[in-house]
Design a protein around this nucleic acid. Structure first.
Lengths: 230, 230
DNA sequence: TCAAAAGTGTTCTCCCTACACCCATGG
DNA sequence: CCATGGGTGTAGGGAGAACACTTTTGA
């Protein structure tokens, strides 16, 4: 089958999506990186991404890429910036529409891609290529802004979690530390948490109460937005 | 001269920038629209925009378009979303990287484009085509989020302004009303305003104090961010 | 002299902050 | 029994919200 060619009157850039996939291990915020299979930068770690198809939106493109790396559908995904510097990609003029996704690491299927994909803590990243470090930095910045108004953090936690885990998550994202008691009071006051009458156990030392989040109030607050002041 | 053609192995979308240019008349928030010169939608009002060139970034493209419509350089401009629905443009697959800009209407050159460009209050918009209404709505949403953390509003005001004008601006952007006295107290407390010892005059009835904003504190707060709670 | 807009200060309440002690568990 | 982490309450301070009267000026 002969290769088809595409002919245009004016030059056109290539358009790709890249995705910053955030996960949380209970302590630290992490990012999923993949190992490039081809030149340039073969075998180097980069953000997962790909060129968009003509009949799909960028969001569809990002979602199907996300599915192929994690086996997850219906994850939280949000477009945050489009990177357009003419020289950002060695291969030619490539524009990248960047997304970040929040996933529950527990639900991510390991295996198929085990050798070519891995989680990295933000404090322990490998060198990144192209402009992927900037992309990652901006993703985190946007996530920080977002989490002040929308309870998106729950997308990163397992169904049941302890107050400590939730606090660790907020601290990891915002890069600050909170007083245990005040944090707990504030969060409970928002009314998003349901106190499961269980305790996590075994844990180191003493078991802690488990919470899940209240999907109903969540729906209410997602539109309206809310405010947590730290 | 014969028209050159561009040939690629894979299909590529066209990439454009569209720009939501906000202005403020002292009372209401406004948007600059242009009249299309060509089909489709000839003579209809749309957001100013254009295709990006291969050797310029999207931001450069938006800026030069902005310059051509307003005569302004160094305006506040911010990318906020990229619109990618496959059917969003009748002319084919066009991806649009959208920006909003904040300009001082007083500084905008009228004239050259007078017949083909005009300001519209948000409450009094003409019908918009393509997905430009959605683009505009999202621009406003992002501007709202932005103004809570960064003092970007000053980009829309003339050098000297009254407290009432500043309040009108915040009310117009956020779509709420504030108590005059509390608003004034809060804003002054941030320390961004310099009390010029002048009064606006003539105005309707009584003259009001004029303020300008303090560029120095502005620079400080722009990085650090700040918080105005309303 | 009346209408419209501007200037100004106080009180009350609520929420955020700082902070310390006791309890349960595992080693 | 000791170390580690979890659970809980209170007192004080600061900031936001509500609110009214006086002044200026143009019509």
């Amino acid at each position: 089958m002969k290769k088809q060619k595409y002919v245009y009157d004016y030059p056109r850039p290539m358009v790709a999506t890249d995705c910053v996939i955030f996960g949380f291990d209970g302590e630290k915020l992490q990012v999923l990186l993949v190992k490039r299979a081809e030149e340039p930068y073969k075998d180097c770690w980069v953000l997962p991404g790909g060129f968009i198809k003509m009949e799909e939106s960028a969001e569809d493109s990002a979602k199907s890429m996300l599915f192929s790396k994690t086996g997850l559908k219906d994850t939280y995904i949000e477009q945050f910036h489009t990177f357009t510097a003419p020289d950002r990609d060695l291969r030619g003029r490539v524009i990248s529409i960047a997304y970040y996704a929040l996933v529950r690491k527990q639900e991510v299927k390991e295996g198929a891609n085990a050798a070519s994909a891995d989680w990295f803590s933000l404090s322990d990243l490998p060198e990144l290529y192209f402009d992927h470090k900037q992309i990652l930095d901006m993703a985190l910045e946007r996530l920080r802004e977002r989490i002040m108004f929308k309870p998106v953090g729950f997308e990163l936690l397992p169904e049941k979690f302890t107050m400590r885990e939730l606090q660790n998550l907020y601290e990891a994202i915002l890069g600050v530390e909170f007083d245990r008691r005040n944090f707990s009071k504030k969060i409970l006051h928002v009314g998003l948490l349901i106190d499961l009458e269980e305790t996590s156990w075994p844990t180191p030392k003493r078991g802690a109460k488990l919470y899940k989040f209240n999907a109903e109030s969540y729906e209410r607050l997602k539109d309206k937005g809310f405010r947590i002041e730290f």
